[in-house]
Design a protein around this nucleic acid. Sequence first.
DNA 1: GTTAGCACTCAACATGCCCAAGTGCTAACA
DNA 2: TGTTAGCACTTGGGCATGTTGAGTGCTAAC
Lengths: 337, 337
Amino acid sequence: MSEPRKLEVLRAIVEDYVHSREPVGSKALVERHHLGVSSATIRNDMALLEEEGLIAAPHTSAGRIPTDKGYRLFVDRISEVKPLSAAERRAIHSLLEGPDDVEDILERTVRLLSQLTNQVAVVQYPHLSRARVRHIEFVLLAPRQVLVVLIADSGKVEQGVVHAAADATDEELTALRARFLGSIAGSQLDLMPQVLPSVVALCPPALRNLAGALAHGLQRLADRSRDERMVMAGTANLARSNVDFPLSIGPVLEALEEQVVMLRLLSDMAEDPRGVTVSIGRENPYDGLSEASVVATGYGPGSSAKIGILGPTRMDYPNTMAAVRAVARYLSRILGG
Amino acid sequence: MSEPRKLEVLRAIVEDYVHSREPVGSKALVERHHLGVSSATIRNDMALLEEEGLIAAPHTSAGRIPTDKGYRLFVDRISEVKPLSAAERRAIHSLLEGPDDVEDILERTVRLLSQLTNQVAVVQYPHLSRARVRHIEFVLLAPRQVLVVLIADSGKVEQGVVHAAADATDEELTALRARFLGSIAGSQLDLMPQVLPSVVALCPPALRNLAGALAHGLQRLADRSRDERMVMAGTANLARSNVDFPLSIGPVLEALEEQVVMLRLLSDMAEDPRGVTVSIGRENPYDGLSEASVVATGYGPGSSAKIGILGPTRMDYPNTMAAVRAVARYLSRILGG
DNA sequence: GTTAGCACTCAACATGCCCAAGTGCTAACA
DNA sequence: TGTTAGCACTTGGGCATGTTGAGTGCTAAC
């Protein structure tokens, strides 16, 4: 038996199965792909592949379907990331034009990616730890309620409400704002824990309580940009692509709703030299996703934030990987990463 | 035949069906509910109900299930909105404590509501048209790129990026900020179109172009709070409650993703004197929701913004209505509506 | 190492049968 | 006039049975 042909057979099985959603048998294979051998030979190869755990038969007299391991081999060694079609390129270019504050861009990007791939698309907000403080604002909502706004030079705005122990006045807030801004403007968000306490310490005693509360609020905002958020689109694709095929979509929806789960999942995916990382079926650390695959990659400064898609293990990996990669690249360019 | 009993029969059918998910027959009815008559009598009543289009039989020898019209009658004339259980009350109180900027609150609220009802919960952001401008901020991101931030006294913060035709400086922005703020601080968001142009007109010619761009940006932000947004939670409930029962969830997910659709749907629901409005099955203006019901109500100032849930027509209306109403009331109280 | 041939397996489909649930109707009853 | 018992009738669901066809594994020949 020849090793190259065995791989060729695996490739054929994966491609046919992804396309037809049905177990594929030896005879159908030789017909659709012009491997120069007979079905009996293929059968031998398939037996070998099965022994190696790359494909499996749902029941005795059915065709074979790829296992997680099979997909893995396919992705790693066989498939080539196909270039996008011209139409797809055009879609990317045209859909990402328009107002460019971060939220808008991410929202449009994720929608685009879900349409290109017919899967659920997910994107992390860019990391802000390296971002710097551009501006802060304290706004008195009520005598003891202060709205704190933190503006980073990345263009991201965070906001939160702080409760003061005693009544505060506009004058006090203006003074404190000047103090804080003087110390932290231009410094990195992840250095805040070092800088903020000293600002509080230098305040006149009368203001110290209020300053402490505000510092705490600012810290929370800085943290919030670290424990990131995400945007997603295309959940309806889950239902569509699985009509009459049961990737039970419940657990997947649950995972998607637990943003923490998704964020960890994305963060934990190693960066792959080839540009996109794939996590297949039971490789996923989350149980509910044991029949799903994640295709993701980094974007932006240092590729620290991730963008990707989530779909059934039986998906068109080459095209999906191409789309994810292309969109991520384009996104990086726009965001100036 | 007695009219009250007929209604009683309809109520029993609805309740049993909601509970068991199976068509309910005459015999089962007399057993589970102690109506003082025989199954034959019930059969006569059921025939009547069917004639009126309130119930239907999936096939000849099956029990009956309520039609949309049947649910409608049930909701309007039969059911009473049950008070919440003590445990549920407690859940509402405890889960809504914590930091209270609008986003956080809405997010927690909608999550809570989805858990209470086991349905998908949706909430509109409160209308800001009556809100007033508290603060604005212009931040130079790049020589020709300005981040515009608009803070309303409701605590809502909107942000966007404006492109300038020529390079701008920090000094110019500071000057313009003072001008704008002087004119629009404290004025209602929906009066912006009247106020902004006059500010621009009064600017020295050198600044007028930039001022125009910024005014445009501010206007966009004000508009954005009007063409509202929404938060939702509990999509996974869709899959759960419909396991082995086919409300085809695809179209529903699509509707949920098209925020515009959902927002119109909510906005268009008339306010009901009883506190909550229900839209059942084909009553919904959107095709994909022909097997779903929406239970919603207003909250906040003037009850202008809506909160509600979306689920299969076969749902426990009394409890759901109670939960929606209770959560909305509590939300109003927190937001000071 | 490849192939043809063949016996074997098994899901999917079809067929027929029976049963239970449920109905509608009629005639008797209060 | 409304209620009830009784009964014939309908029909989907479950079950056993048979048939088909796709697909396999094995063996022997090439």
